[in-house]
Write a protein that binds this DNA or RNA. Sequence first.
DNA 1: TATTTCTACTAAAACGTATTAGTAAAGATA
DNA 2: TATCTTTACTAATACGTTTTAGTAGAAATA
Lengths: 328, 328
Amino acid sequence: MAKSIKEIAQELNVSKSTVSLVINHKAEQARISKELERRVLDYVEKVGYKPNSLAKSLATGRSNTIGLIVENIGDSFFGPFALYVEELLRKKNYHVLYSSTLGDPQNARDIIDFMLEKKVEGILLAPTVNLDEHQRKVLEYKVPLVVFDRNSPEVATHYVHIDNGESSRKACLHLHEIGCKNFGLITIDSDQPQMLARKNAYLQFCEETSMQARILHLSYQNLRQKGMASLQNWVSKNTELDGLFFTTNYLCILGLKSLRSEEGKNFDFPLFSFDDHELFDLLNPKISCIRQPLEPLAKTCVKVLLKEIDRGISIPREYVISTDLIKR
Amino acid sequence: MAKSIKEIAQELNVSKSTVSLVINHKAEQARISKELERRVLDYVEKVGYKPNSLAKSLATGRSNTIGLIVENIGDSFFGPFALYVEELLRKKNYHVLYSSTLGDPQNARDIIDFMLEKKVEGILLAPTVNLDEHQRKVLEYKVPLVVFDRNSPEVATHYVHIDNGESSRKACLHLHEIGCKNFGLITIDSDQPQMLARKNAYLQFCEETSMQARILHLSYQNLRQKGMASLQNWVSKNTELDGLFFTTNYLCILGLKSLRSEEGKNFDFPLFSFDDHELFDLLNPKISCIRQPLEPLAKTCVKVLLKEIDRGISIPREYVISTDLIKR
DNA sequence: TATTTCTACTAAAACGTATTAGTAAAGATA
DNA sequence: TATCTTTACTAATACGTTTTAGTAGAAATA
């Protein structure tokens, strides 16, 4: 069905080179006559020629594809983020090969390998833990790499992120201002740097204000099943609590669900979420939050990556995007 | 950095064929001696050989990639759906080249062309309107195509979907049962078949029960800006309304936001959404809904597509997945 | 008229792999 | 010892492009 340049050339009684040159708008520079150019162009149009991208990439070394590696394409942060990325890249004639790691380093490694094999021209990565080796590998292969959302301090890459510490501090101040003098922190039990930064800012705040630190660590594994129970348990034990700060929106949602399901026992203290959610402004209690501005985040990632691709790999830098405090 | 088979062969003083055969576990069938096999294997391991997928695909005709074309990877239906698809395909050693059409047929056509050029082995498509030609093109190119969520009746493809009419009818019956005798329908102003089916079932229901049909059509363009106003306006004009049926969840969310923002004027009739949402069970008023079971949907899509890829293109069939009515 | 320069192309090599037909050497058979 | 098999490989071709060096013929120059 799909004709190749070779076939087209035979059918037109010209050489493959001629056809290729014409197709790639190099007729003029290769001194192909206008007549022949037209003849080729018309025929190509007529048979509906579609280039074989694989062969093309093999010959040129360019795949026009970039890899996007997120934690979970289905969640309310990465999904919309991915959409922005795709839109921005579409304009530059790039396409996206994406994959979700689900936080599993082995998945992440497989994905990176696959993308290197596919000869993506650059990779946009939200790393899992234990991914240093593979990030170095990408760099060794001279494939531009931009890391976002979190990073490994041990690997020197371009890194686009929000200021987690500062944002977390803003959150604490806000809670304090509206009267919470004993709010607790609910976070995920992992050493993802961005989570640690959020937690540390809270700890620091506690120290400064002499507030007692109350932290619940939940594990990402079977969060749905075990998380709710431990959260309920923890809250009912810590009766002095007068506010909750969730270090990410899915924890906040979990919190809402578990606290809600305890009928009767209506808690009435403020909840705060790191990361907004489409429906947070419809809920009561009202949920204030830190919002990561997705579009600037995506724009910066794409801009930095494309620059690396165009101009060659440069000295790694950090790009900090400031967050918004949404009071509700 | 990345060594090729050719280089490896030279460095080992053997032929390219030998290296290739060993790498592809065909040493035995090609009667390569165990010793040489080991030698090659060790060396390949040592230099960290990574095959060039492009060259490989060019030679074998297999890309191990499938294309996934959705409307919006960032939304709460397609995002999680995509995650399921990816997971299922990962197990079969396939990867995903995805793209969002945003409902724009021209985007969709570009995406399809790109995927054909990339030699994806199959395409999973949620079509936009006016995409018949390009769907036929995919079929002409002998690339397996499975369409989901919506289809064009004019093109014969495998089609995985829920029964929109029947589900919509279930929704109407539910609303009727809980006492709504005058509920209206809010839908999108487009001729997407699944939306039409939902609307038609409502109309049919109206006829059967002699309920007056009240329908508001909103346009997808600048929904966010204009939609809220027209919705508020419509609801306040139709004072007899005692329930609202939204034909999709983003409309329902829009509805919630616009109705909510009218302070004071608290409406207290039931809302029903076609498509669930992560947070619907946390809202009040409680939102009942039709839930499309994402996992079965994704499983069926993937299964059908892989079968087509394996066994060759077969006569198009429809696969209907039944929905759940979630009462809240 | 002999040489140079243009014109309008084409031949050939390259990208990195898979695959099939072929082959030299050793071993088995008669 | 002459022929057939088997062993252990390799040479050659193909996949579909891009790109560079080359070339035959015409036109211009000397």
